[in-house]
Write a protein that binds this DNA or RNA. Structure first.
Length: 209
DNA sequence: AATTTAGGCAACCGCCTGATG
DNA sequence: GCATCAGGCGGTTGCCTAAAT
């Protein structure tokens, strides 16, 4: 294998995309698809790296992108899922059709985070309701584990496990699970929900997966 | 009207994971 | 089993615009 990392390629353009570049990227993907992001810019005649093309397509040019303000339902969903999953933006985005992880991340940092901080929730923890549920559940050890784990790096498997074992009541999860319309449960959420359901009633430090 | 400040968002960076040879 | 790569992800930066002074 002798593949060169795309970042090492010299003379690639950076910064904001022009309308012309967008046009080239869109028409190329519409015609040939995006099987190989790394090869795409060369094939399309773009002086961008594959990563940049992918990001532009996913976050801005994709036809199914939903732009504009977040609805109240979407805000609620983000708050709830953030309470369960932490900063796993792609997982949250999977439950909001048409929204990208980048958009949700930006929205969180510019709107929701501030709102939560204003409402007096400590540690930057998300949904006040979820937190309240967690606090109401202080009789078990699991809840303290949960609170401590809220801010863990998003790629750890711990947050979802620790998070909803102590913090999320079956009601809350059911609410998310039963959500219809624009906020459907992703496969991952379904996965965690199933684990949660099968472990309900057990108060252990770890869940059985 | 000019300047400064704050907010919003697009894009980049660096790391991780899974696939492949 | 190891090395390398592509794709994917979250964190962060920096530019642009609107609001405030």
């Amino acid at each position: 294998m002798t593949r060169t990392p795309c970042c090492e390629r010299m003379g690639l353009k950076k910064g904001p995309w022009t309308a012309e570049e967008d046009q080239i990227l869109v028409s190329h993907i519409q015609r040939y698809g995006h099987g190989n992001w790394r090869a795409l810019p060369k094939q399309a005649g773009l002086l961008r790296c594959g990563k940049s093309c992918r990001l532009r397509w996913i976050n801005y040019l994709r036809p199914d992108i939903k732009r504009g303000k977040f609805s109240k339902e979407e805000e609620d969903t983000i708050l709830k899922l953030h309470g369960i999953l932490g900063n796993r933006w792609s997982a949250i985005a999977a439950s909001l059709p048409g929204r990208t992880d980048n958009e949700i991340k930006n929205f969180w940092h510019t709107h929701l985070k501030k709102r939560i901080q204003k409402s007096g929730v400590h540690n930057g923890n998300p949904s006040s309701r979820i937190l309240q549920e967690a606090q109401a559940n202080t009789s078990s050890n699991a809840s303290s584990v949960m609170i401590a784990n809220y801010g863990l790096p998003s790629r750890n498997i711990n947050p979802p496990i620790a998070g909803f074992y102590g913090a999320v009541s079956s009601d809350t999860f059911g609410e998310i699970k039963d959500n219809h319309g624009s906020c459907q449960l992703s496969e991952e959420m379904e996965f965690w929900y199933n684990i949660y359901s099968s472990n309900q009633g057990k108060h252990h430090e770890t869940m059985e997966i």
